[in-house]
């Protein structure tokens, strides 16, 4: 007994080192699994506050270009509204308030990106809105130009978003012209190019085709822009295409985003789990 205690006292430094190392390794391994990073994240008060302080200065630098983008988006939306009004059939439809039963499934919350990375293999963004602004995990995040990522974790005031430039990210996407769909992943190489896999060989692909979200999940509505086809090649089995997609979004400079809330996500999930049982 004496010997054991002596040993413990003598090598307490090494033991303490091993214990802390194990703790750090456990946290690391856990952080590499999607949806299980519970303890250490950038949604805490300290780093959130620091990011906010930095952002309150740097956000002024991009104002000119954001204004221009906002103007362009506004023009586009106005044109859309114009077309909508001209379409008398649809106007009647709206007037009869029948749209309630079909549309308005999605609500948007505007937020600002206060921290982001793009040159790692697993990139994340931090938003300045959190649970207090009705943001919960698994909501989609977009800009006017396209998809940005999916909310992974929220605290009261901040949200951590898993970027599409993250090897764990998987987003349902499809071709705009046809309905062939696949999943969007990132191979970790170029921050402006992502990969769309599992597109069947029959799909008529062309360089420059637009890729949009597929709407087969509760996260994004159908038709949110992603990017355009840069090039594509058949995989080893010669059955599916892997498509390199050039993003419309400049992921190195994401300033203002919208978080999408699917008001029926809860119902859909309940239904799916009840079917599984």
């Amino acid at each position: 007994m004496q010997q054991i205690i002596n040993f413990l006292i003598k090598s307490r430094n090494t033991l303490w080192f091993l214990f802390l190392l194990l703790l750090a390794l456990a946290l690391t391994v856990q952080s590499h699994n999607y949806h299980s990073n519970k303890f250490i994240s950038s949604t805490n008060y300290i780093s959130g506050g620091l990011f906010n302080a930095r952002n309150s200065v740097t956000s002024y630098f991009g104002l000119k270009s954001y204004n221009k983008r906002l103007l362009e988006e506004n023009t586009q939306l106005k044109e859309l509204l114009r077309a909508f009004e001209d379409d008398t059939l649809r106007t009647q439809f709206v007037q009869q308030k029948q749209l309630d039963s079909v549309g308005f499934k999605f609500k948007y919350v505007a937020a600002q990106v206060i921290n982001s990375t793009y040159h790692k293999k697993k990139n994340y963004l931090t938003l300045n809105k959190g649970r207090n602004d009705t943001i919960v995990p698994d909501m989609g995040v977009i800009t006017d130009l396209g998809v940005v990522g999916i909310v992974e974790k929220v605290s009261g005031k901040y949200a951590k978003v898993i970027s599409i430039l993250n090897e764990n990210s998987r987003i349902n996407a499809q071709l705009k012209n046809t309905n062939h769909f696949g999943s969007l992943i990132w191979n970790g190489e170029n921050s402006s190019i992502v990969q769309l896999t599992d597109i069947p060989r029959l799909a008529p692909l062309k360089k420059g085709d637009t890729i949009i979200t597929g709407g087969r999940s509760t996260i994004f509505p159908k038709g949110v822009l992603i990017g355009e086809v840069k090039d594509f090649l058949l995989d080893q089995n010669q059955n599916y295409f892997t498509v390199n997609v050039k993003l419309f979004n400049d992921m190195t400079n994401v300033g203002f985003v919208q978080v999408i809330e699917n008001t029926e996500a809860q119902k859909i999930k309940e239904l799916e789990t009840s079917l599984d049982e």
Binding site: F17, L20, L21, L23, A24, L25, A26, L27, T28, V29, Q30, S31, H32, N37, I40, S41, S42, N44, I46, S47, L50, F51, N115, T117, K122, Y124, K160
Partner: peptide, 19 residues
């Protein structure tokens, strides 16, 4: 290291390295 991890979403990589 842990404080650095919190700001960069790296789990425990910084903590392990500093340790």
């Amino acid at each position: 290291g842990l404080v650095l991890d919190m700001s960069q979403n790296t789990g425990g990589a910084h903590a392990a390295a500093c340790l």
